[in-house]
Every structure is written in C-alpha cells, then in structure tokens.
Design a protein around this nucleic acid. Structure first.
Lengths: 228, 228
DNA sequence: GACTACAGAAATGTAGACAATATTGTCGAG
DNA sequence: CTCGACAATATTGTCTACATTTCTGTAGTC
C-alpha cells in the first residue's frame, strides 16, 4: 500500500479503505444509503465494527450520519468542492517545498517505480488500480516530504477530491493521468522547486477545470431544496 | 461553542470533545490508559459509543489504540512535535491570507468580543476556560476565513498542539496569552496582511520556543527504549 | 378523491453476556 | 534467591437480543 503509517487500527481501517475505494470508483454514489447490517454482511464483520468505521468516515467527511436515520455517502456542495481544491493546492505546494529540500536520489527512484506502476495499470485498464495509484502518487510525495501531518491532511483531501470528482465530473473516472506526474518527477530530479510547484499547480488546476462547479447538484436527501 | 460545523454526530462528538478537553487541561496525561468501561461509566453512555469515540480520536491522532491492549493518550515524539508546529505555521498563514481578504467589520467585532472573553477568563484564573478560549481564538480566525476545511485542519492541529505542550512544557499551562491576540486583531482591523502574518508567525514561534524539544521524552509504554 | 391516523416493517441505538487475549500474581524447581 | 511455568484476573473484542425511532403502506373519514 501507499501509506507508511496506518492512522486507524487494523480491521476498522480496512473497512474504511474499502468504502473509500468504492466511493472513489463510483460504485457507491453520493447520497447512497449505507445500511449497517448490509455492510456487516458484505465485509463479514460485526455491526459494531461497521459503526466504528462509519464514525471515522464521518469525521473524515466522506459519510454523513443522521441520528436514528443512518449513514449516507456525503454530498459536498459546490462551495465545499471549491474549498477542497483551494486548500489542496496550498497543501501540495507546501509538500513540494519540503520535498525538494530533502529528497534523496534513492527516493526519486521510488517515484519512478510508482510512475511505472501507474503506466502499467493504465495500459491494463485496471480502473481500481488507476484510482488508487493516481492518488497514491500524491500521497507518496507527502510521505517523502517527511511530514506525517501533511500526509494525513493530504490523505483526507484526496479522499474528498475523489468524492467531488465522482459528483461533478461525468466523463472521466481517474483523477489525473501519469503524464503530468512524469514531468513533475523530472523537475524534482533537477531540484527545480519553482518548476515543480508550477507543474503541480497546473496539474491540480486541470483536474478542477474538468469539473462543472457552476451549478449546485441536487442532493438526494434534501429533496425540498432540490425540487422546491 | 466556537466551532461552526459539527463534524461528528451528537453523542460521539460530545465524548470526543470532553476527552480532548481533558487532555488539553492535562487532566489526562500522555500515555494514560483509557479503559472503555471506565469511560462508559463516567460519560454515562454505552461501551459501544465509547469505542466509536476512541476510533475517531485515534484517526485524529490524539489516542493510540493497540489491539487487544486498549486505548492510550498518544505520546508524540519530538520530530512529530516539530512537524505539527511547522505545519501549523503554514496553515495559520493561509488562514490569515484568506481572512484579511474577506473579513467584515461586524466579524472583527466578533474577534473583539472573543478577546474580551479571554481577558475575563484570564482574570478569573479559570484554567479550563483559558485553554478553550485561547485555542478558540485561532479556530474563530479559521472560521471567519470561510474555509471549513482549513477550520477542520486547524482544529486537529490545535488539539495536537495542546497535547504536545502538555508533554514538552512543564511551567505554563495555557497555549498563548491574550496580548498577542490583541495586536493581531489590530493588524486585521487595518487589513495589514503582511503585519498580521508576521505577528502570527512570531506568536506561534513563541509558543514553540517555550517547549523543550531537544531531547526525547521517555514514553510510558516503550519502557525498553526509555529505561534501556 | 384527498387527507389523516394508525399499524406494521425495517433499521438504528443500546445493553448485556460470552469468548479471546494480555497482564499479573503465585507456586515450584534449581 | 532467581527464573520459568502456570493459574487467576482484568480488559478488550464480538455476538445476540431487545428497545426506540423512522419510514411505509393501509384503512378510514370527510
């Protein structure tokens, strides 16, 4: 896996991971209801652990829990979507800053290896792997930046980005292709901080530009607002 | 309370809040064991809900859960402590940037009101209130910056800062006094972005400088490392 | 025909009991 | 007296059953 430190304990983390992946792959649509018993059966765990996982996912913003109603996949509005991308640009800029100052040649090799995995998955058409790896590239950068805190923030941001792209972009599924990642690696190899930051900003801007954030998407739950 | 949006549902959030406050007030020491049954009795809730709260706190980094062993208050090392303050300086800088651009006079009044509350608590010597309000000032800034995401990150950062100061600073209890907050407000009132950012950086640096981050504090659990 | 009230179904929230595991204390051998 | 095995205790992890709440479908009334 692409994260160095598990932030949540074993079994709970696995459930969170699988639900997150399902959301990122659009297998779970925003607003979809997450029945505890159903999840417990699917993952073959107790309902208690499902509830723990849902509580964590709620604190991550991926799931919304309504008391006595149940858990639903969150439906971030356009303002929240813009907010996420705005912050993400800031955070990834800080990651690049730190990264360039301290990365070693061996670690750059890790980036190359990751990029190869991305390309292979791209050729195979392995959607699940593409999504994991394209997000994982950014997480790897954060990990190599040496700040577990930035890593955690970025992990959260990428999860939400996946959710947002699932809502506001219809055509493509993956977040970002390997090409821009390649040119970013080249800047890092040359320790070109300004260039790397410029590419990263453009890269994230491309992802954001493909979204349609002009109008609010009617939410599944707030029918009154959607149909009023 | 000082947060605009609850990220976690009702009862679970309340438990997280109370545990967090206990940690910030040093009533719960780093490394302290958190027995589920005990917590359930104290908060008068079911053990299941305590487990949910602990899972959330773990994902926030305030609590460490060891399988089949239990939950403990986290004990961040010196490198993690430096990391938190480094990121916090970056995040709070972004908060100030956004804040100055969009704050209204009415909202500045909110800052003044908050400052008055801080001063009153300071005169009363109300430790619990001082801790809540001094952190709350920074959270209010994030809230007024209009980014719920930055708010969430800062909330996390402040929690960890409290934990870190609890470990690495013996003398003072509060994180930051109201005086520097006052001069920060003055810069905001004048829309002096550069000045505000300078004061904020200095403010956070003061807090960090009072910590003793030169040597690793022996952890309660890793006795082998502490006593070896 | 439309609206309200009520009953049934389904899902969540909670409590309790039981099993698995780690720690602690005790006994005995050397 | 020290070390190691073993039993006792305490705590976590899990499952089951039940109470509570919400949603849905139906019947009754105007």
């Amino acid at each position: 896996m692409y994260h160095s430190k598990e932030t949540v304990t074993g079994a709970t983390a696995e459930i969170c991971e699988r639900i997150w992946l399902s959301i990122a792959e659009k297998r779970l649509r925003p607003g979809a209801r997450l029945k505890e018993e159903q999840l417990a059966e699917i993952f073959d765990v107790s309902r208690a652990r499902v509830r723990q996982a849902l509580a964590v996912l709620e604190s991550d913003g991926l799931v919304t829990i309504v008391p006595n109603r149940g858990a639903f996949v969150s439906e971030p509005g356009v303002d929240e979507a813009r907010d996420v991308f705005h912050v993400r640009k800031q955070i990834e800029a800080r990651v690049i800053e730190r990264l360039i100052d301290r990365i070693t040649d061996e670690e750059i090799q890790l980036l190359d290896d990751h990029l190869n995995n991305e390309r292979e998955a791209d050729q195979r058409g392995d959607t699940s792997a593409i999504i994991r790896l394209s997000g994982g590239f950014h997480l790897l950068l954060a990990e190599l930046a040496g700040s577990s805190f930035l890593f955690g923030i970025l992990r959260d941001l990428i999860s939400r980005s996946s959710l947002i792209t699932a809502i506001y972009r219809g055509r493509h599924l993956h977040n970002c292709g390997p090409d821009e990642h390649a040119s970013l690696i080249e800047c890092i190899r040359k320790r070109d901080k300004a260039g790397a930051m410029r590419i990263m900003q453009a890269h994230l801007q491309h992802v954001e530009d493909e979204l349609d954030l002009t109008e609010e998407v009617p939410t599944t739950r707030d029918l009154r607002q959607a149909l009023g």
